[in-house]
Nucleic acid binder design. Structure first.
Lengths: 151, 151
DNA sequence: TATTGTTATACTCTATAACTATA
DNA sequence: TATAGTTATAGAGTATAACAATA
């Protein structure tokens, strides 16, 4: 099977890719996403939905558009997401009191409990990954660095 | 417009998201991808296509499946990608000499020049982003850390 | 039996444009 | 005029299953 005519997978040279932050970011993020799926897919929650819940839980009363802007998503993508979360009885739309065009988003009681379970699992996974780093200081440095590269 | 009934975007509390490496990775990677698009979309190259070219350029003769495995993609996704790159006269399929099932991938002459232009642009963008870091040492540390988190 | 390239398919994510009702 | 939510739509990316040719 292996010969010296066609290269085998083991000896692949990644060349410039090894020096690119962009490529390494992609690999690391893909790994985090697949681990997230292992931990949370049975609850029907994707990373994107988790982010929405986390924002609403901390900022009750935000409109759909405000949540979208905070997360860097498009308004239109919020509709199906909030529809799903409302059907799952995790959060609910209430008419905004001062603007009849918009809805304000709030957690349900079940949603609060659900988020506690969910964030527990996510933080557990984060701790496992963070344990690969050398110190708490290194984790803080990584978070700060990723934030600098996000703008 | 702004009032104290519904929160405005400026005051959004990201809560747990601020502590999650997974979320920060996503934001940073989205930023890198949109910058990559600004720099390379006029050449018709996405980050995924760039990675394929970079691997073939450094490892001429690899099969489609070998490239897919190296990049963590599925075989089936390679077909359309290689079709496109072949139509762009960047790389070419040649029958593998010892296995009539598979093709070996090679750069064309035009592809070599194209890749030089392309990687020049990408590295320029990388330098701009890396200049936000405090030192060359910090960049090395970031690349190493992202690699650790990719497995 | 297993593997390569391929096709078909489907599902998610994302982005755009247009509509309505309100502001 | 501008904005919020919505709908329709289209594109990219990704994953699975199955098939023919070949190992």
């Amino acid at each position: 099977m292996a010969d010296d005519t066609n290269k085998t997978d083991q000896s692949v040279d990644f060349g410039i890719l090894n020096t690119l932050v962009g490529y390494r970011l992609r690999r690391a993020q893909m790994n985090f996403f697949s681990k997230f799926a292992e931990v949370c897919s049975d609850l029907g929650i994707s990373p994107g939905l988790f982010a929405i819940i986390a924002i609403v839980e901390r900022n009750p009363g935000l409109t759909q558009t405000a949540v979208a802007q905070a997360l860097g998503n498009d308004r239109s993508a919020m509709v199906a997401a909030v529809d799903k979360l409302e059907k799952m009885d995790i959060l609910e739309r209430r008419p905004a009191i001062n603007d009849r065009r918009s809805y304000a988003l709030f957690m349900t009681k079940k949603g609060e409990k659900f988020f506690a379970t969910l964030s527990g699992r996510v933080m557990e996974h984060e701790k496992v990954m963070a344990s690969r780093l050398e110190s708490e200081q290194e984790l803080e440095w990584l978070l700060k660095t990723l934030d600098i590269l996000s703008q």
